[in-house]
């Protein structure tokens, strides 16, 4: 849940990058950290294993400037994608305002994407939040691998698998090259801001 400080006119918004293991969530934040370094005042925090897998979360605070006189502090988090870490995934989701679901567009990842999305639905439900109501953007990541001849799912298939009921904004992307990473971020920020704006009387 976003937190609004009426005295200092600061709004804190929690956006979580969610998705299957090795899908590219951390890579999204690393790109944002490099690309928007002017809007980022502190170090990215990464709680990870020696093998660079997210163990608990990554955290990156992002200054958005002002909307209606309120300073927007966007707090970006990633969850650990590995199946065994669902308990920690749930902890990170606590109080979430908006979600980017990072799917891995490789053909072999089709099942895992769907399973992860279903678990997101369940995890949100445990906090009495609905995947159909929360601001959500889908990202079909790693499409750059197409150029290397690696089988990538057509976007129409990904849309059918994941977005036929949700009907939320979606992007093909490459977190590695940054393709559509800023677009994904802007979209989730604007959806989230719209959804909490009614609190900013």
């Amino acid at each position: 849940m976003s937190f609004i400080n009426l005295r200092e006119k600061i709004v804190q918004i929690k956006i979580v990058y969610y998705g299957p293991g090795r899908g590219g969530k951390t890579t999204n934040l690393e790109y944002i950290n490099r690309k928007f370094n002017k809007q980022i005042q502190s170090e990215m925090v990464s709680l990870k294993t020696h093998g660079d897998r997210t163990l608990f979360f990554d955290f990156l605070p992002f200054d958005m400037g002002k909307i209606k006189g309120y300073e927007m502090k966007i707090q970006l988090y990633t969850v650990p994608g590995q199946v065994k870490y669902n308990a920690t995934r749930k902890l990170v989701l606590k109080g979430v305002d908006g979600i980017v679901f990072v799917a891995d567009a490789q053909e072999q990842m089709r099942e895992k994407n769907i399973r992860s999305l279903n678990q997101l639905y369940e995890n949100l439900k445990s906090y009495k939040q609905s995947i159909f109501k929360i601001p959500l953007v889908l990202q079909y990541n790693k499409v750059d691998l197409r150029n290397q001849g690696i089988p990538i799912l057509p976007t129409s298939v990904l849309e059918k698998d994941m977005n036929s009921k949700l009907k939320v904004p979606s992007f093909e992307a490459s977190a590695l090259t940054g393709y559509h990473v800023p677009e994904t971020l802007k979209k989730i920020i604007s959806s989230t801001v719209v959804s909490i704006q009614k609190k900013l009387l």
Partner: peptide, 9 residues
Amino acid sequence: IDMAGNIIT
């Protein structure tokens, strides 16, 4: 702070 990691003051 709150349990979501927001700063109250």
